[in-house]
Write a protein that binds this DNA or RNA. Sequence first.
DNA 1: CAGGATCCTAGTGGATACTG
DNA 2: CAGTATCCACTAGGATCCTG
Lengths: 127, 127
Amino acid sequence: MSVRHIDVPYSVSANTDNCLLRGVLDRVGDKWSVLIMSLLLDGPRRYSDLRRVIDGISPRMLTLTLRGLERDGLVLRKVTPTTPPKVDYSLTQVGRTLSGQVSELIGWAEQHYAYISDSRRRYDEKG
Amino acid sequence: MSVRHIDVPYSVSANTDNCLLRGVLDRVGDKWSVLIMSLLLDGPRRYSDLRRVIDGISPRMLTLTLRGLERDGLVLRKVTPTTPPKVDYSLTQVGRTLSGQVSELIGWAEQHYAYISDSRRRYDEKG
DNA sequence: CAGGATCCTAGTGGATACTG
DNA sequence: CAGTATCCACTAGGATCCTG
């Protein structure tokens, strides 16, 4: 038996395409999505605002990440066509629930931080 | 103000080093960790067993991923020095809790699968 | 202001051959 | 059996410059 779908306890596949889980894991795992969503939890923000506030992000990656989030319906992009233009980004309701999930994960990380650090130290010291 | 630490609602940093969250997100986001942990939820497995059962993984990545999980104290490696050798991998208690967290995330993904697919389709169709 | 277009690098992962 | 050791490909992401 080869793993394409594991039925218990949930479906996982290494297959990049057409796997719903892969998409979510990739998003959560990428460099900027979680950070951006966490910022938007506090309320809408403009593009330049995000750019200023996020340390070290390139315009390219900011746009790419926002587009990805928008495409998935996690973030809403609202253009006000003035000159110069104004673009606000906000979390959708679903985006908000994902942020909630992620914050659970972060809670886990905080809770087990010491354990993991210790484990790594011990692993690195003696083979 | 530049984002190194966001206090509300949780700390996120783009900084690769010394960020506890980054490590967890990277692990969850990588290609094989979640899959392997989900398999180990059912019980211990041998190296060759994992290799056979995981579709498309290279020995290199299997070892690398297992080592990473072991280093973080998520997976336990137990060697039985017979000839030929036998090595069993199992989840630690902490590894089990992380798997639990991840399965929550997967629950989220399943719950919002239709929404996301729709959103993508609409986004791709019209600009 | 809010990006698009380019070019480039580094890290992640694949393929395969070999070994204690 | 349970890995190493190499070599290679691909892509996520960074740096810059340009524009409606």
